[in-house]
Design a protein around this nucleic acid. Sequence first.
RNA 1: GCCUGAAUGGUGGAAUGGUAGACACGAGGGACUUAAAAUCCCUUGGCCAUUACGGCUGUGUGGGUUCGAGUCCCACUUCAGGUACCA
Length: 923
Amino acid sequence: MEYNHRDIESRWQQYWKENKVYKAEINPDKPKFYVLDMFPYPSGAGLHVGHPLGYIASDIYSRFKRLQGFNVLHPMGYDAYGLPAEQYAIQTGQHPEVTTRQNIDRYRSQLDKIGFCYDWDREIKTCDPEYYKWTQWAFMKMFGSYYDKTADKAMPVSDLTAHFEKHGTDGVNAACGKEMTFTAEEWNSYSEKQKSDVLMNYRIAYLGNTMVNWCPKLGTVLANDEVSEGVSIRGGYPVEQKLMYQWCLRVSAYAQRLLEGLDRIDWTDSLKETQRNWIGRSEGAEMRFPIADSDVELEIFTTRADTVFGVTFMVLAPESSYVKMVTTPDRKEAVEAYLNEVKHKTERERMIEKTVSGVFTGSYAVNPLTGKKIPVWVSDYVLAGYGTGAIMAVPAHDSRDYAFARHFSLPIVPLIEGCDVSEASFDAKSGKMINSAGAELNLNGMEVKDAIAATKRFIEEKGIGKVKVNYRLRDAIFSRQRYWGEPFPVYYKDGVPHLLDESKLPLLLPEVDKFLPTESGEPPLGRAKEWHTEDGYQLELNTMPGFAGSSAYYLRYMDPHNDNALVSAEANGYWQDVDLYIGGTEHATGHLIYSRFWNKFLYDLGAVVKDEPFRKLINQGMIQGRSNFVYRIKDTNTFVSFGLKKDYDVTPIHVDVNIVSNDILDTEKFKAWRPEFNDAEFVLEDGKYVCGYAVEKMSKSMFNVVNPDDIVEKYGADTLRLYEMFLGPLEQSKPWDTNGIDGVNRFLKKLWGLFYKGGELLANDDAPSKESLKSLHKLIKKVGWDIENFSFNTSIAAFMICVNELSQQKCRSREVLGQLLVVLAPFAPHIAEELWHAIGHTSTIVDAQWPSFNEEYLKEDVVTMAVSFNGKARYNIEVAADTPRDIVEKIALEHEGAAKWLEGKTVKKIIVVPGKIVNIVVA
RNA sequence: GCCUGAAUGGUGGAAUGGUAGACACGAGGGACUUAAAAUCCCUUGGCCAUUACGGCUGUGUGGGUUCGAGUCCCACUUCAGGUACCA
C-alpha cells in the first residue's frame, strides 16, 4: 500500500468533523489552555500560502497541549466588516453581506483542507447580529462611563452627574478633553443640551470635534494606524486633515495602564517597545509665559525645563486658539495669509517639503525666569494635537528650533559648557549648564539631569507651572462614514445624542438602495428609509470602524452563543485569558492597543476577570512572494536565459511561478500561457531556460501567488504543514519557495515505509532495541523542547533523523512506532492518525498522551571527546561515559598523537568538558 | 534622525561559550531502467595536497574578554522592519 494523501486526509478530516473531536467544553477537572489566531479578514482573493503559517503553528501548539492533558480552546472566526467588500459593493451593487459570505465560505473550505483542530461550533463573524450586539453593548457601556483618575478606573457617568449636582467640578479628578470648572448651581441650571455637551468632555465614548484623517476617495475618516505616509493603507489614496464632529473613544485615559501592563505580559521586547513608543510617555513640565501688555498667558509643555534661560522665541501651532489672542492688528493680514497657506498644504506636502516657514504674531511673551521679552511666532512645525500646541523655542538645544532660528535670524544662546552650536544644535541631555542664572534660580555648573529637576521644583514652588506627564497616544476616532459596519445604538433628540434601550439590541444594519453617500453628503445610512426610532427620532448615520468588532472577539469565543452576556462569568472564569496569541506584527499599534484598552475597560466594569487579554504573543513572519522573470530581447519575441542576458539588450518580464520549477522555465507551458508568447523563441543555456528571481510582495500582478489548495492537492496537507514550518524560524519573514517541498514529502514517504512494505504491515510486538529507544527518546526530548520554544523547523529535522535511524535499525516495534506517531501528530495529524489506527489503536491519536522521555535511554556508554591544544581541535579520544576527569586527562595525554603537539611545550592546565572537549593549554 | 532586529556554503537554514555548516534543496557522480519518472548510494564552504580518515583557512569589518567566541563586550559597515517636526 502506497502513501495516498488524498484518501487519508479526506477520510480523517471527515471523521474528526463527524465526531466533533475538537469540541471544547468547560471541564473544571482539567487545566485550560487558550490558543488563539488573529482572525482573518476574508478577502476576495482567498488564502495564499502565506496566510496559514501562523495557523499551522498555533495548530501544532494546540495539539501538543492537548496531548499533554490540557483542555484546549482553539477557535476561529472572521473579521467580516471591512472596506474591500464595501468598495466592491459600490462598484457592482452586490450587497457586502453576499460577498462576505462567499469569501468566508471560500476561506472555510481552504482552511478545512489543511486539517486544523478548530472547534467550529464556536465560530464567530463580526457582522453577525448575534455577535455585534455585544460590540454595540460595549459602546453603550463606554458612553455611560467616565475615567476616574483617583480610583484609576472607569466609573458610571451617573456617579459624575450626582457629584456635579452636589459639588460642581470641585473635587472631580477625571480624564477629560479640557479642564472645566463650574459650581453645582451652574450645573443644575444647565439645559439638557448643555449638560450633554459637558458630559461629552468626560465620557469614554464621546462625540468630539477632532482633527481627523479624511480620505476623500474612500469618503471616510481613517484611524492613525490606517494611514501611512499620508496615504490610506487600503487603496493608497491621499489623506488630508479635517475637523469633524465624530465619535471617539477615550483611549488616552488608559495610557498609563496600557504602558504598565506591558511589564506583565510575555511579548517580544521589540513589540513592547513599539507599543511604548506609540503610547509615548514623556515627563516634563507645563509652564506659563505671560504676554507683555496683555492678560493672555501662553501655556507650553517642555521636557527640557532646564533650558528656560535659552528661550529666544515662542512658537504656536497654526491651529492653536492662542493665535487669535496674540496676533496684533498690524500683523493680522500676514498671519491670516500664513494660516491659509498652511491649511491648503496636505499632510503629505508638509512631510515631503519639510521647509521652514512661519510668521511673527506681533506679540512678545515674558520669560518668567529672566523677565526678558521674546517674540511669539506661528509655525506649522508645532503640532496642535500634542502638549498645549505651543512651545518655548530653545534653538541651541533643539534641532527644529535651531532650523527655525537660522531661517529667521533669531538669536541662539548656548546653555551647555563646551557645546558648539555654529553648525547644528546640541540636543544631547548631558553636560554642565552655563548662561543659566537668574535672580532667583541659578543652574550654572549643574548637570542637565539635575538642572531639569531643579527647574521643575522652582516653577512649582513659584506657581509658574507644574510637573506634567504627556502621552503621544491619542483618543481613537470611532465614526466611519460607511455602510458596512456596526450601527451605533444612538438616536438624536433635539441635537442631543441618546442611547437606545439595551433591550433593543442588536440594532440591525438597515438595507439601502446604494452604498454611496447621499446627495446631501450624509453617510450611506442616510439612504435607509426606516432609520429612526419608533417615536421618529433620527438614528446615528455613522457606523463603527473595523477595530470595533475585533477588540473583544477573544472573549466571545469563550461563550459564543450566550444571548444574555458577552461572556458568562462561568465561561470567563474558566477560560480566563488567551494563553497564546499568534499573529502578525502589523497589528502592533492598532488592534493590539485597542484590544488591550477595550479589555481593561471591561475589566473595570467587572465584566471580565483579567485586565490583560493576551498572556503570550508570538508574531509569525510575513511570507513574501518569490517572483520569476524571463528576459525578452528588445523588439523581438525571443527570450534569453538568465546566464546569457548580459550579452543582449533585454526587458525582464514577470512569469507565472507555477510554470517554473527550480527556476527552470517550462517553455511549452510558457508558449501556451498567453497568446503573444505562442511563437516565442528561446536562447537556452545547457539546453535549459533559466529564469531570474526576486523577492517581492505576494500578489496577482507579480504572478507569484501560490495557492495552498494546489499544494494540498499535489503533496497533501501534512506535507504543506511540515514544509511551512520547515522554511525557517516562525518569527522570521521569508520568501515562499516551493523548491524544496520534495524533501519533506520524501520524509513522509519514508515514514510510511517504516510501517508498510508493499501492502504488508510491518509493525510487530518485538521488544524494542536499545538504540531504537535512544533514537525515539532523543526525538521526544527535542520536539517537546522545540514546541515550547516555537522552534518548529528544527523539530522537523529531528523527525527526519529519527525516521532514518529507525529505518536503518529496521525497527518495527509497535511501541516505538506508536510513540513516534504521537510526537508527530501535532505536525502531521492525518498520516499520524492513519498509521496509529493501522498499528491497532482504536481511539483517535488526538486523545493520546504525550510520551515522557527517559534520560536513561539517552545516556551514552562510550563518548567521543575532542582533544584540543590551546583551543584547536587535534584528535578524538573515546572514553566510557562515566570516566572521571583525571582519567580522561590521562587518556588524552597518552594518545599516540599527543607527542606531536606537546613537543617542546609544557602543559599549563587541562580543561575537561565531560563528554565533549578536553582542552590542553600549553605554553 | 530615533527604536528594533538581522548578517553563517550555490540556496533555505542548524549550532545551552565547547570538533561551525545539523536537516533540506540544488548541483556533480554512480546503481536500477531500452528510456524517462520514481527510488537508492557516494561527493558537495574555500584553498592545498591526495601516499595518507592529511594540512591551512573560514560565520559582514576592526578590536577586546576567554584555555576556547558564530555565540559575550566595544567600535564600525550593510540590510530589513517600525516610527517621526511629539518640544
